[in-house]
């Protein structure tokens, strides 16, 4: 069974490019309905299927995603 993971997204620094969404093999991420103070919709976690694979964080241009994985 896949390990469990989780992500923390610095939503204020997210520019809403959506590249992380397509990088996530578990479809954990979606765009928010709200916008941050810069006016960008930001990435949010919509389920708990994260495995901590780090794909979203690696490909995030602005490095706003921190990833955790159970040991």
């Amino acid at each position: 069974m896949a390990k469990k993971g989780d992500v923390v997204i610095q939503t204020e620094r997210c520019k809403g490019c959506e590249i992380c969404l397509s990088a996530c093999p578990q479809n954990v991420l979606a765009m928010s309905d709200k916008v941050n103070s810069k006016g960008y919709r930001y990435a949010v976690k919509v389920n708990s299927a994260c495995t901590g694979c780090t794909n979203c964080a690696v490909v995030c241009p602005d490095g706003v995603i921190t990833v955790y994985r159970e040991k």
Partner: peptide, 10 residues
């Protein structure tokens, strides 16, 4: 899971 020992990417 969100604790320092589980950090895998920052």
């Amino acid at each position: 899971l969100i604790k320092p020992e589980n950090l895998v990417y920052d």
